[in-house]
């Protein structure tokens, strides 16, 4: 589904990703772990198509298509989703209008008619239940006045609405209490099917108690330095990242 080959990325002339490679197949959950400043969020942003990054070499294929040639909204329409580390507050745009626009743009890209209002509301209600959102959420402005936990739940909710093929969760667990963490993880587990895949970017092993990864990658200085199964996360939790600093 996704192939990242020897990716080099710079911001303002400073190289952040230094030969990053990763292959992801349908049905897989990949965890990427590593200390601050190793390029984990850069990876998420580059995949989602944020401006301001210079791709100096390498390639990214998404279902065989060159992802780097697509604009951010085209990537989203083709089934790629980034759950933001810091979801943006958008005063004045209601969650309902925001998601209606998003769902309909996606449908338009697939050659479908806009969703019927009744169907849309029904879908919203179902998916809201999944992440235990309150009813007034629909009419509130996107993320405005939301607690940290609500913002992260909203990311998962949006993911549920858009039903992506590949979702990248960028430190979705940071700043969450244990209840919110459970809600978020539960949402992800319910959405996981043999047809889709997840990249879970995290600092801590904690989230991986709830979302069990097929692969754990350790990222250090802009590339993957070690890959293992879920036990690698436990080992990292015990030993820390120092072993890689020495290497």
């Amino acid at each position: 589904m996704l192939q990242i080959k020897n990716l080099h990325v710079s911001i303002d002339g400073r190289e952040i990703l230094k030969g990053f490679s990763l292959e992801i197949n349908k049905g897989e959950i990949h965890a990427i772990m590593g200390p601050n400043g190793t390029g984990k969020s850069t990876l998420g942003n580059v995949l989602a198509g944020k401006d301001g990054y210079e791709i100096t070499s390498g390639e990214i294929l998404f279902n065989g298509e060159n992802l780097l040639e697509l604009e951010a909204h085209e990537r989203a329409q083709k089934g790629l989703f980034l759950a933001f580390q810091y979801p943006v507050e958008i005063p004045g745009v209601s969650n309902a209008n925001f998601l209606k626009a998003a769902v309909n743009e996606q449908r338009k890209a697939m050659g479908l008619e806009p969703i019927a209002p009744g169907e849309f509301l029904k879908m919203m209600r179902e998916k809201m239940e999944l992440v235990e959102m309150k009813k007034d959420f629909i009419s509130r402005s996107v993320n405005q006045g939301f607690s940290g936990g609500e913002k992260k739940r909203n990311e998962i909710f949006q993911m549920a609405m858009l039903n992506p093929q590949l979702a990248i969760l960028d430190e979705t667990d940071s700043g969450l209490d244990i209840d919110a963490l459970r809600i978020v993880a539960n949402g992800v587990n319910k959405l996981h099917t043999p047809e889709n895949a997840f990249i879970v970017i995290t600092h801590y092993q904690r989230l991986l108690d709830y979302i069990v990864p097929d692969f754990v990658h350790v990222m250090f200085d802009g590339k993957i330095v070690k890959t293992g199964d879920k036990n690698l996360a436990l080992e990292l939790e015990a030993k820390g990242y120092e072993q890689f600093e020495l290497a």
Partner: peptide, 13 residues
């Protein structure tokens, strides 16, 4: 940042 957030949900620029 707001623009990118909307775009990342599939809404054109």
């Amino acid at each position: 940042s707001e623009l990118f957030y909307l775009q990342a949900r599939g809404i054109g620029k």
